[in-house]
């Protein structure tokens, strides 16, 4: 690459310089090589604020090519304002195409959800991570946290699950359920709902986690063991909608969200909902 190309990039809307992308790709390779390990990286400031997908955006920009097709969702919705904003940034700065259909997308950036269907060997799932440290609830000191991960010393995590079950009768962890990856590192699963957790296990696709504010990248490579932390005799529970189904597409085997104080349920994955309706029609 010539100096001139660096100073005057052909793509005028470039959000990251080429050195930064290279650096991020290197961090991603390390993350894939050590599944679940939080790789520190020189997270750059993006045109979106910290906490608004700046980590996911950096990963997406580092992996996307002109011939990629991207899907961006927030809460499962392609039309959420932040999803729209991020998609617009990615497509205008890279020349990649966009889609709302997961099966058509080569890169899917998401906040808080995994699409209900369509991810395969060809897909890369990029999850935006607000808090990459799964142990922060039991330990605040970063020196100690580093030690706990290094020694796979997760007993305090288990104690917190024990206490939870004793006090509340159930494990009350809601989203971002802690999982053991490749029988080695405990990771924070962004906050995706528990509903999505089983689909990370032995998945055909690569999942990349980007925490821009905390400057960490980690990964679950395809076909990797992902086990939610739970006791042998306490089954892991996904969100229970009590047999409800989507008011629009009638699905009952998708993650549903409801209106306040009502029995009206809707799919959180809006594109899945749309396609199910079209198939029903």
């Amino acid at each position: 690459m010539l100096l001139d190309d660096l100073i005057n990039p052909t793509q005028s809307d470039e959000l990251l310089d080429e050195f930064a992308k290279r650096e991020i790709r290197r961090a991603m390779l390390a993350a894939v090589a050590i599944p679940g390990y939080q790789v520190p990286f020189g997270s750059r400031e993006m045109p979106v604020a910290r906490g608004w997908g700046s980590g996911g955006l950096q990963i997406t920009l580092a992996v996307v090519h002109d011939d990629d097709v991207v899907k961006v969702i927030d809460q499962g919705d392609d039309d959420g304002v932040n999803a729209v904003n991020l998609r617009r940034l990615v497509t205008t700065s890279t020349g990649a195409d966009q889609t709302s259909v997961a099966a058509e997308a080569s890169v899917i950036q998401s906040r808080h959800r995994i699409p209900e269907d369509g991810l395969d060997e060809e897909s890369i799932l990029v999850l935006q991570v607000p808090v990459p440290e799964p142990l922060r609830g039991v330990e605040r000191d970063m020196r100690e946290l580093a030690r706990m991960h290094a020694e796979a010393d997760y007993s305090r995590m288990w104690v917190s699950l024990y206490e939870d079950k004793v006090r509340n009768g159930v494990i009350t962890q809601t989203t971002g359920y802690p999982c053991l990856v490749n029988e080695r590192y405990v990771v924070a699963t962004t906050p995706i709902p528990r509903w999505d957790i089983p689909r990370l296990h032995e998945s055909p696709f690569l999942t990349l986690f980007g925490a821009g504010r905390e400057k960490r990248i980690y990964a679950i490579p395809p076909r990797t063991k992902v086990e939610p932390l739970t006791f042998d005799d306490v089954p892991f529970e996904v969100e229970d909608a009590d047999g409800a189904s989507c008011a629009m597409c009638k699905s009952s085997d998708a993650f549903l969200v409801s209106l306040p104080n009502s029995d009206v349920w809707m799919c959180s994955d809006t594109d899945w909902c749309r396609r199910t309706r079209e198939a029903n029609a």
Binding site: Q75, N82, R111, T174, T175, I192
Partner: peptide, 10 residues
């Protein structure tokens, strides 16, 4: 930002 997926889980 919208947090209705996490809130639903809560």
């Amino acid at each position: 930002l919208p947090h209705y997926v996490t809130f639903r889980s809560m």
